[in-house]
């Protein structure tokens, strides 16, 4: 069916994305010669990822952001909501390393504190869509037939909307705030995981070890949880990293539009939305939060790419 072909095409392209890192060539150099390590084993994946320059950069950037974010109450001399009207609109200087905003709040403190919104929303929403999507996809793929078509028709509904508009629609229904933003993004992300998982299951369902499990009267739920999901999880790992990075972008976009996290909170998108009015005279207020968004999204992207290279099923044989 054409939609399936479309999904398959997209998936294949996503998988053979290869270019960004070293891709296949990189693999042969790092992974293959040491034949004692089996492709697909944890050790192999780790070796491949840790030899990937992009992934190392990504992990360092991410670790840096997480550490700075956690230590922000200690590092920062000013509270993220602390206003000093006499210090407003300062450009970066030794006192305020990244300058201050229209209310004299220290941008460094705000940006570092704001990291937790992007990270929490990105990760929690992704976890939510991953768990629900995987279950839905696994059920659809495993049972097939009527259940499958019900689930797929349900997912088709989601595909009738552009991602951002779907997220906006959920924001309109749920309202604003961190929890609601997570809910909106979490639901929006379900179809991606479900489709991916279903395609995987269909690939695996006919394998002999599933047949073996059925023969020894293994309960259905156990077959799904113990045999099918662990064997089809590797593309999902890649999808998780990519979804976190995408959610980071979407959540900041929603906050920028005033539909996600609301303005006094130092969410990066919300900060940019506020700073927009001062772009003419104080461009640093616009530039600083944006750079942090890019770094965070970039780090997850790089890590996801490295995992994609390491887990690519076409490389396993």
């Amino acid at each position: 069916m054409p939609e399936e072909i479309r999904n398959e095409v997209m998936e294949r392209q996503e998988r053979s994305h290869e270019g960004k890192g070293k891709g296949r060539h990189g693999h042969h150099r790092h992974g293959k010669p040491q034949d004692s390590v089996k492709p697909g084993s944890l050790k192999y994946v780790w070796r491949s990822v840790s030899h990937n320059k992009g992934a190392v950069i990504g992990m360092i950037l991410l670790a840096l952001i997480v550490v700075l974010c956690l230590l922000s109450p200690i590092i920062c001399r000013y509270g993220y909501a602390e206003m000093n009207i006499q210090d407003w609109y300062q450009t970066p200087n030794p006192n305020h390393l990244l300058g201050t905003d229209q209310m004299g709040r220290d941008l460094l403190s705000r940006v570092l504190y704001g990291a937790r919104y992007t990270l929490i929303i990105g990760i929690t929403a992704t976890a939510m869509s991953a768990v629900l999507g995987i279950l839905l996809g696994a059920v659809a793929g495993y049972f097939g037939g009527f259940v499958d078509s019900c689930v797929m028709r349900f997912l088709d509904l989601f595909q009738a909307f552009p991602t951002l508009v779907l997220a906006m629609a959920f924001c309109a229904v749920f309202g604003t705030g961190v929890d609601k933003c997570i809910l909106a993004l979490g639901i929006t992300g379900i179809p991606g995981f479900a489709r991916l998982m279903r395609a995987n299951i269909l690939r695996i369902a006919n394998m002999e070890y599933i047949e073996a499990a059925k023969t020894i009267n293994c309960p259905t739920w156990k077959t799904i949880l113990k045999h099918i999901i662990p064997n089809s999880i590797s593309p999902v790992i890649v999808e998780i990293a990519m979804t976190i990075s995408r959610n980071g972008l979407t959540s900041s976009s929603l906050s920028f539009l005033g539909l996600g996290v609301q303005a006094p909170k130092p969410e990066w998108g919300a900060m940019l939305s506020e700073a927009r009015s001062y772009i003419r005279d104080y461009p640093h207020m616009v530039i600083v939060p944006g750079i942090f968004i890019v770094i965070t999204v970039l780090s997850f992207n790089l890590i996801g790419d490295a995992f994609r290279d390491a887990l690519d099923p076409t490389l396993k044989d």
């Binding site: 270019g19 960004k20 990075s245 972008l249 900041s252 976009s253 920028f256 998108g269 940019l272 927009r276 772009i279 003419r280 461009p283 616009v286 530039i287 944006g290 968004i293 890019v294 999204v297 970039l298 992207n301 790089l302």
Partner: peptide, 26 residues
């Protein structure tokens, strides 16, 4: 090209828009 496209891919469009305004209009 890979480096530049990777970077652009990670830039939220509203930030790109604001930077463009900053450079080309202001």
């Amino acid at each position: 090209s890979l480096f530049i496209t990777l970077l652009f891919d990670c830039m939220p469009s509203f930030w790109t828009a604001l930077l463009l305004v900053l450079l080309f209009s202001l």
